[in-house]
Amino acid sequence: MPLWTLLGLMEGKQTAPWPRTVGADGQAGFIGMPRYNPERCTDACQACADVCPTRAITMRQTADEGDGKAGRLDVDYGRCVVCQLCTEACPTDAMTPSSDWAFGAARREDLVWRTRPSAPIAPADRSRRSFRRSLHIRHVDAGSCNGCESELQALNNPFYNLHRLGIFFTASPRFADLLLVTGPVTNAMLTPLRATYEAMPEPRWVMAIGTCAISGGIAEGGYASGHGLDGVLPVDVYLPGCPPNPAAIVHALLMFLDRIPQRVSGGRLDQ
């Protein structure tokens, strides 16, 4: 009979020191959201908007910059599926690959590129404070590709070890504080999704994980898919990505609990 306990002990501590220690998050080499550099954008070019499969990049009709949007493009990271086609199509490096993945945001507009980042985020709802060291999550797959599930399942592996942060997945929505939704919300999952939300006790919150849950992603529309959670459930945290990596999910969860600050504002990370 093998000595599993001994094997486990001999492996030593495998859990990442992150987020307490900066770096060491296991995401070396990870390519995240493309970075938009409007000053490098040239007139009469719309290569990136043409290749974008989810209309995350669109051409602006007017040059009006009054609303804080700059350049000739509208860039919405809530629609980005991180396919990197824009970074390959852009002839002038106005769209460049980056390692930016900590894109969890409390407001949908924080994911849209602006010259002047919107006003600082107000401190999270006081009623969340009592959940800071004990948060229970119910996950609902509303039609994802299983990529987001794969990363959510990774949260409980020894490397991320979500339990150490006082965050747990629970089987029953009756015990859940946070509803975590993936997928574009297919026709058939709409009713079960709403029923799960209705079964949760107050106070309850919703997190949209992955670009599909925010805007429908690559599967958006058609005869079978919806447009994400917009108009379906009130969303408290948005985390785009295709899929967001486990560290990004941990970051978004801690941000939701007001344990670390939001990093994205005006469609880019604080540097």
Partner: peptide, 20 residues
């Protein structure tokens, strides 16, 4: 734990090689 840890290491190798 060990199986999922090995899978995580493999995924980290994937990211290092391809960015995804």
């Amino acid at each position: 734990a060990q199986g999922k840890l090995l899978a995580e290491r493999a995924k980290q190798i994937n990211a290092r090689l391809t960015g995804s």
